[in-house]
Structures are given as structure tokens and as C-alpha cells.
Design a protein around this nucleic acid. Sequence first.
RNA 1: GCGCCCAUAGCUCAGUUGGAUAGAGUGACGGACUACGAAUCCGUAGGUCGCAGGUUCGAAUCCUGCUGGGCGCGCCA
Length: 558
Amino acid sequence: MKKRLEALLRSTLRHCFEQGALAPCQVPAYVIEVPNDPNHGHFATNLALTLASSQKRPPREIALSIVENLMDPQGFLETAEVAGPGFINFRVAAREWCRALSKAVPLKDAYGRSDTGSGEHVLVEFVSANPTGPLHLGHGRGAALGDTLCRVLSCCGYQVVKEFYINDAGLQITILGESIWARFRQMEDPGYPFPENGYHGAYVLDLAEKIAAETDLTALSEAAAKAHCARRGKEIMLGEIKDDLYQFRVPFDVWSSESELYRTGSLEQTLEGVRGKGFLYEKDGALWIRTSDFGDDKDRVIRKKDGEFTYFASDIAYHLQKHQRGFTKAINIWGADHHGYVPRMKAALATHEISPEWLSVMLIQLVKLWEDGREVKMSKRAGSFVTLQELMDEVGVDAIRFVFLTKHHDSPLDFDINRVKRQDSENPVYYVQYAHARICSIFRKARAAGLTVPDELESLESYLVLEEELALIRMISVFPSRLEDIARSLEPHRLTYYLTELAASFHRYFNLGTKVSAHRIVTDDPDLSRARLFLAQGIKMVIANGLRLLGVSAPKSM
RNA sequence: GCGCCCAUAGCUCAGUUGGAUAGAGUGACGGACUACGAAUCCGUAGGUCGCAGGUUCGAAUCCUGCUGGGCGCGCCA
């Protein structure tokens, strides 16, 4: 719809220039938007305001010229009025809205798809938790955000790869092994010392029991036993992480491993590439990279005095490889506490002439958990945290995923477990799901009354005439462009707001029928009922498609 | 000390990327089912968009400075 209006305005401007109604000029950037006040019509444009300076005429006068010369031979528009300081407000003919609905509904699951991202090949890396413990709430937020973003991107025609980077090399895994070993020894000798920086969670004891049951650790040297605990502990934890994510409906395409970068030698190889460009140097017995040449505060160590590579080294290698793999864009979802790493990562990429735009880092703020009116402090090291698994058992995947996307990712999120657990209107997910279930229920009623729910229907304009009905159609029709906005802005939370608004409009519409029986969807008039059922079909379709993108179920009854 | 992020109704947060009279949810109060699902709807109340300047036709949105909060500044990951 907006695109048709845009084309109409283009030809109108051309006409104005030819007729001399406006002085020929470069058309400045202007916007066509959906006003938030319905009195301002279906669409509004600031075109005349932006033309004012180059035309050297008052904006309202320009707007009037445009309206008078409108090129609308087919009667697409019902009204076009100059308003305020020079806005032009448009109302599109009801017939056009009804046609849009007729075209949308037969698309079913495909409604919302577009090709705006065609040609783009995007790698989205998210969660990427260390396999040293179970996933917790913060990981869940990243998983919900990343997965929904990927679903929306795919829907908009982007080619997307979902990737999990496993930090399975280095010190943390060693500490995990030592922690498991210590718990194992403590079974016999309660006084056996626990490592200073060890993992204190109860799951470490479970790991110790499990590993001891499958392998006789006492037959190994202490060093070998610790190494075994580290390797097996990592495997088991990774398995649990994968299970959790599967249950959370977050299927990854690629599991990328840090230790593989070491094993295959590709880390060294990639760093040689950086060296070849002249951005590495030795100082104080360590190897440094000149990130300060590209806006970082200072240079960074990538190989320590003791010969070990830093975490940053493998991260550089990993990201350069992402680029080599041919992606046109990379998106990382990181905890906000890592924001300091963004400049250095971009600087490292810049050593290979990779634009900072190529990598988008989405920083997610912390999740604060509240239970019984108190904040539950979480610490992985201290072993006190609520796992994603526990939360899924208690609350359910639908509610968790939805709630995680009710706020901008850059805004801290308070997760009130008592509230999310409640299966009532306190919980926003049920509001949307209920609208879907309610429509399904109406369909059952309609079929029982001998009516069919049409999948295709035209000539709706003589039946769908209520302001509420046209508002619903308009809301349905913006769904594809709303998804495009989300893909462009990387802000999936807009989807929950959109769906909540759509559900609200439907509930409001439904309630008209409780006052005036003529406004019910199923009425005595079969033709009218069919048209209204068709509209309901469209609403149901958009809710179902939207919820699918959120990874939330669309129940037929509740 | 330096850097990034945030500040909007009592509370939790949106705000279409610079548009018109700033909106939802929740809490408070008052209403609507013998009729398609009341997990719903309608109404009332609630605001100096942290403060002060600046940019322009126009600012919650962009720039500067302040105040208050979160996070980060390691040869840890």
C-alpha cells in the first residue's frame, strides 16, 4: 500500500513539474508514515515540508499544489488533505484495503515474507556459552533474541546461519576439570582442597559422579585424571546445553569450536595473515596487535609471555574466518559487560580492510530475576543461579520466549518468576495466544452452524464497513513491512508489541458483538458472516505467523 | 580518571529512527456476560519525557554541558 502511494506521489510530482505548479528541483528525502492519530488518515507525508526551502514557498501552499495535481486516475485515494504545518494526510479507499486482505489471506504461512534481504548472507552468532556450566537466564535472553532475529531475517529473504561458538579451549575448561576432580576426591576425603577459582555449582558433583561411574579415575595419574575430567565434563555440559537449546526451540546450524581453531592450526595461520599485513609486533616477550591504529584505546596482547594465546587471539582468528567464509554481514549477540571488546574486535577486522559496518554487535543487558518480591542474585562461580532448564520446567517455553522479547535488548530486564508463572492475564503471552484460540473457537462455532470459513474471498467492501474492521485490515497489511523494519533495525522486540496491538484490536472488535448482536462475526446473514470470518482468518494467520517467528505456539484452545 | 549504555505516568516499559494533542501494561477507582470463550472489553485518574542550553518550520528522539544510575577499562575468559 505504501509503495503504491509512493509511486502515485512520484508521478504527481512529475506532473507538477511539467505543469509548472512546482519549480523543477531535486526531490529531497521525505517519508510516508502511518500516523498514530487515526484522524490524520491512513498515511501522512512530510513531502511539502521538505520541499519548502528549495521551492521558497510556504509548505502549506506547496502541499495544496500537490493535492490539486494528484495523479490518481484509478481512485486509489479516498481523500487527500493538507493539515497542520503542511502535512498531507491520505485516506485510501476502503475497496483497496479489502482487496489487500483478499490477496493476503490465501498466502497463509507465507504471508509476511519478502525479498528485502535477498543477496545478503548473514552469520548470527549468539549464546556461545562456555561449556563449564548449565545455561542460565541471561543465556536464555540471548537465545530468544538471536533465534527470533534469525527467523525474521530468513522471513525477509536474508540467507542466515545460526552459529554457536564454543569456548572450549583455555583456562576455564582446565578449572572445570580441577573442580570435578576435587569433588571426586572429596567423596573419599571431605578435606580435599577445592580449587580457588573453582566452579561451586551442584552440577559439578553430578559430573564427578557420572564420570567416575564410567571411568576408573583412580587408575589414572592425577594430571591425567584432571585432563579426563576436563574433557568429559566439557562434553557432558555441551550435550546438556544442546539439549536445553533444542527444548528452547533454538536450533543452531553450526557449532563452531575454539579448540578446533588450535587443533587444525588455522589460528596460527590466520594470525600469520595479520602479521603479513604488518600489524603484529613483539614487546616484553609477548606478541601484540596494533589495534590502536584503528581506534582502539591501546594495542592488545595476543600471545602471552608464557607462550599461551589470549582469548582475543582466537576471537580474531574466528572472526576473520567468518569473513573468509563469505558472509556479507556478521551479527554478534554479546552480554553488555563485553561492550569494551567491540572496538578492539572491529580494529582487528580493520587490519584486513573489513569495514566496521560488516560486524554488528548487539549488546544485551542483564536479566534480573525476582522471586517473592526479592531479587535473586546469580553467580556462576558461586553456583547460585536459576538455570534455563529449571525455568522451562516451571514456566514453559512460550512464556519465557515472549517475555524476553517484550523489552529492547539494550534495556535491563526484570524477570518476575511469580508473574510469568501465572497462567492468567498478568502474562502478556496469553493475551496474544488467547486471541488466536478465540478465533479458532469462533470457527468451530461457525462450522457447527453450517458455515464454511473461506480461504479465498473477494468483493468484501460491501460487508466489511465498520471502522474497527478496516482498522484490523490495515493492521494486517502492515505486517510484512513491520518485519522488514525489524530486520533492518535488529529490534525483534517490536514483534511482541505489534502482536499485542493486533490482539487488542481483535478483542475490542469481538466485544462489539457482546453489545450489539449485529456486530458479531457469526450473524444471521451468511454473506456478511463469511466476510467477517475471512477477516478473522487473516488475523489468525498473522498471529500464527508472528508467534512462529517468536518461537511461541499458537494454541487452538487454552 | 577515561570510555560505552541508560534516565518517559506510582511501578515495568513502548514510542514507526526528526513529525501533528507523548502511548500501552500493571496498580487504584467505576462499569459491561440468560447471545460467537469475561484468560476479554469500556470509562476515570495519573506527565516540566532527569536538568540547562543549542541545531530548525518542528526535538522524548540529533549536538554540548551538568546531575544521577549500570557496565567496562588484565600478558583473565
